[in-house]
Design a protein around this nucleic acid. Sequence first.
DNA 1: ATAATAGTGTCTATCAGACATTATCTG
DNA 2: CAGATAATGTCTGATAGACACTATTAT
Lengths: 275, 275
Amino acid sequence: MKEIRNKDGLTEKEFLAQYKPGDYKRPSVTTDVLMIGMNENYTKMKILLIKRGNHPFMGCWALPGGFVNENETAHQAAARELEEETGLSGVYLDQVYTFSKPGRDPRTWVITIAYLALISELQEVKGLDDAEDAAWFDLKFTEEEIKISSEEKAVNIVYNLKKEVFYNGVLRYENYIPTLKSQDALAFDHVEIIIEALKKLRRQIKYSSEAFCLVDETFTLPELQAVYETVLGQKLYKKSFRDMISEHVVETGEERSSRTPNGRRCKEYRFKREE
Amino acid sequence: MKEIRNKDGLTEKEFLAQYKPGDYKRPSVTTDVLMIGMNENYTKMKILLIKRGNHPFMGCWALPGGFVNENETAHQAAARELEEETGLSGVYLDQVYTFSKPGRDPRTWVITIAYLALISELQEVKGLDDAEDAAWFDLKFTEEEIKISSEEKAVNIVYNLKKEVFYNGVLRYENYIPTLKSQDALAFDHVEIIIEALKKLRRQIKYSSEAFCLVDETFTLPELQAVYETVLGQKLYKKSFRDMISEHVVETGEERSSRTPNGRRCKEYRFKREE
DNA sequence: ATAATAGTGTCTATCAGACATTATCTG
DNA sequence: CAGATAATGTCTGATAGACACTATTAT
């Protein structure tokens, strides 16, 4: 059965034994991870950036990431990088998009597979390896602009967003194109990666359960609603939200105050798995 | 401003001039395209496969695809391959997922970026380049199995599907794992690519307008409904479907019979672009 | 005429949006 | 008690599901 011979008269086994990869050029393949958490009272999204310690974009802030090795999947590579940089494992990690625009890395040909990671608690981070520094940044994402800032690091990165129309088959699509407005900038095409990852998160959080990755194991409904509102960038009606979410949560039986001052104590909930 | 020097005392310009890519191993990067069309009366999905003319998987059917070049994006590479193989351009083309499991290609380390393409009319195809043959196959995708067959080519490929549970962060996910049941098989991990692409198409067609890429420029509502039903693999209620779709179509003023025998003549419609 | 399909009307259950009311907590 | 937040009730409008009825065509 496996004795089929090709035009050079080789069987599959013989073919593989003599196979030599051609000398056409190959790209480096990396993963970049947008890691998202929330601040203490769920009013802001926080993202993890590292400060580049070498050229190119030396001194600029960038997404953590690294090369994919031959003996691992891109998903494993992203998880490994994340664990190396933050000590976290078992976090939510989802492939977003693969970026391959020529020239996106001035050194050489690099294709990057972007991942979105969600965590419920911000860990202390410090720069390791090539990174001169690492920190959690505030993220603001609206129709008009994307703003990434850290008071502690005295960094303020702002891009204006303009909608651009393109066609895919007969369908019309809109895309954000960012224009740098601040002194500080992100390295490479990392703004675009962040934008795509945020768009994906917003699309998914409504119909899936990603939000539960951003809160503690137990949470109150006002806290959970705050997560949705912050991620989506819009207010939600309390009753509608609770109706929508009710089938995915169960009461723990406990009560406690929410992460906001004042007011009545809340029931505590836990995520309810399907089936 | 650009005069920052790194630990070797180099400016960015000097760094890039002396930069040599390390000698760590790099993968080949390819695109694979699942091209989907419909049969004459929209009752079946059709996919384009090519027959491999060399090892590995010589004689097996596979997705069309090819290497990404340094001067193009993966999207452009997929479009180029498609045009080379079918003469089609301007079709709907959407990135699905990047596959990177070690050993997925027995020759060497290959990472592939999968694309989904949709077309409204099946073109005559013939094998070019490495492909010994090319043909449109019938596709059947249910909860239990995926079946890819061609009467003309006397090929019948069947995989059973079993649901597998895995966890991503706190969330529970289900995945299909295919098991080959037929004599004939697809090359590489192309079943998995097809499954992922179909899942994505089903997710998207409800909330987006991909279906319009699968019909002619003008169409009747029974035809459009047939496309939805075939892609989703379930019957839809006529009235609900028409209510849902009504804001995205306009009458052309013409009338004609649908692509099914008998019955009353239909109003003809056209896709209505937003704004 | 009859079978088959096209097109539309209508009832119901559900649910998001919107607002109001009651309950409980802090100071 | 006042102000704030939590929890829940209720009304409305939109919509998917389900079924029925009328209109038009081929045989």
